[in-house]
Computed example of a mutant assay.
Amino acid sequence: MNEIAKDFLARCFAPGSTIALLLRTVIPAKTQQRVVMLEQALAPRYLGWLAHENRNGANIYVAANPLRSGSRKRTKDSIASVRHVYLDIDEDGDARLAALRASDAVPSASAILSTSPGKYQVFWRVEGFDFELQEITLKQLATVFGGDPACTDCNRVLRIPGFVNRKYSPAHTVTVEYPSNALAHPSDFQLPNDMTDAALQLRGTARAIGSRKDSHSEADWAWVCHELAQGKDAGKLTHELASRRSDKPNPLYYAQRTVDVASARQWLLEGAPIDDVITVLSERRRFELPTALCSARAREIAATAQRLVARRKIA
């Protein structure tokens, strides 16, 4: 157990980092926070103490980003830099994780934690993010892939693998896999164009996030919605969009997703039940994708479209 936690922390933080650990017990209600150097947290005696507290009912967490040297509290102002972006998936987890793995819109994750059956926390180790861009990306990830929208603060704490999740009965040992050792950069997150307006609202201005690709994607979205409303065949529209966007890392994936999200949004606006939307989306791609992935993808896209419709009604 201690070696799993040690390896995770050593992967997540650079030597000399100041990190924040949180220990939370439900019964009796008790919270302890420790701000320590990474090397102290990796020491056998310290890991042994964490394991002891975990056996006695405490859930063990770490702040996803390092703190400024000399900090005593885990406030937003005390965060030194953006080390990770992350996603907390706590509903329909297996399907949403499958959709995330299949997506070309995000790079391979640095770590995927199974925090309890069907619930996951996904980490990307990053560089080149400021706090504003991190918050935008966290909100986009949560909206696109169905994550917890509350998990979007730079001082957020997430679980540490190797320890036991005491929130549920029976308790669940938190496990981890490491899909990639590569650092991710802002340009690696090509999140779907339908999230662009949400990002712009967060910035409080109508300027693009940072590249002409965003304005191109906005135009693609508007064009696809218009063509579908005019009755254009989705298959032909998909191939036309893919040929127009050869600049994308995976033009066909980009076109398929754009057309499918726009289609689902249109059907929901017309009053179609979400189960029918999922069925049609699955049928549309059943010859292109494995059955299990096709179904999971359809549910994720339908949920994304449902949130777009809800946001449109609020607006």
Score class of each variant (00 low, 15 high):
residue 2 N to K: 14
residue 2 N to V: 14
residue 6 K to A: 04
residue 7 D to L: 08
residue 9 L to V: 03
residue 10 A to E: 00
residue 11 R to M: 06
residue 16 G to S: 06
residue 19 I to C: 05
residue 20 A to H: 09
residue 21 L to C: 09
residue 30 K to Q: 11
residue 31 T to C: 11
residue 33 Q to H: 10
residue 35 V to F: 04
residue 39 E to M: 09
residue 41 A to F: 02
residue 43 A to K: 00
residue 46 Y to A: 06
residue 49 W to G: 09
residue 51 A to F: 03
residue 56 N to I: 02
residue 57 G to R: 07
residue 59 N to E: 04
residue 63 A to M: 05
residue 64 A to G: 13
residue 68 R to I: 07
residue 70 G to Q: 07
residue 71 S to V: 11
residue 72 R to Q: 03
residue 73 K to Y: 12
residue 77 D to P: 01
residue 77 D to I: 05
residue 81 S to N: 06
residue 86 Y to D: 00
residue 88 D to N: 06
residue 96 R to W: 03
residue 98 A to P: 01
residue 98 A to K: 00
residue 106 V to Y: 07
residue 107 P to V: 07
residue 109 A to H: 03
residue 109 A to P: 13
residue 117 P to V: 08
residue 120 Y to F: 12
residue 121 Q to D: 00
residue 122 V to I: 14
residue 124 W to F: 06
residue 127 E to S: 10
residue 134 Q to Y: 02
residue 136 I to T: 13
residue 139 K to T: 08
residue 142 A to V: 05
residue 144 V to Q: 05
residue 144 V to L: 10
residue 146 G to H: 02
residue 147 G to C: 05
residue 149 P to Y: 00
residue 150 A to L: 11
residue 154 C to V: 07
residue 154 C to I: 07
residue 155 N to D: 06
residue 166 R to W: 01
residue 167 K to N: 04
residue 185 H to Y: 15
residue 190 Q to P: 03
residue 190 Q to L: 12
residue 198 A to R: 10
residue 199 A to M: 03
residue 200 L to C: 03
residue 201 Q to S: 13
residue 202 L to F: 09
residue 207 R to I: 11
residue 207 R to N: 12
residue 208 A to Y: 03
residue 209 I to M: 09
residue 215 S to Y: 05
residue 217 S to T: 02
residue 218 E to P: 04
residue 221 W to C: 10
residue 222 A to K: 10
residue 223 W to I: 00
residue 224 V to S: 03
residue 228 L to A: 05
residue 230 Q to A: 15
residue 231 G to I: 08
residue 231 G to M: 08
residue 237 L to F: 12
residue 237 L to C: 12
residue 238 T to G: 09
residue 238 T to R: 14
residue 246 S to R: 15
residue 247 D to I: 08
residue 247 D to C: 04
residue 247 D to G: 13
residue 248 K to Q: 15
residue 248 K to L: 09
residue 250 N to G: 09
residue 251 P to D: 05
residue 253 Y to S: 14
residue 255 A to N: 12
residue 256 Q to S: 06
residue 258 T to H: 02
residue 258 T to F: 06
residue 262 A to V: 11
residue 263 S to C: 13
residue 264 A to Q: 07
residue 266 Q to E: 01
residue 272 A to E: 14
residue 273 P to N: 02
residue 275 D to G: 09
residue 278 I to E: 15
residue 280 V to F: 13
residue 282 S to E: 07
residue 283 E to Q: 14
residue 283 E to M: 10
residue 284 R to T: 11
residue 286 R to F: 08
residue 290 P to A: 14
residue 290 P to N: 13
residue 295 S to K: 07
residue 297 R to K: 09
residue 307 R to K: 11
residue 308 L to G: 03
residue 309 V to L: 13
residue 309 V to G: 09
residue 312 R to Y: 13
residue 315 A to E: 10
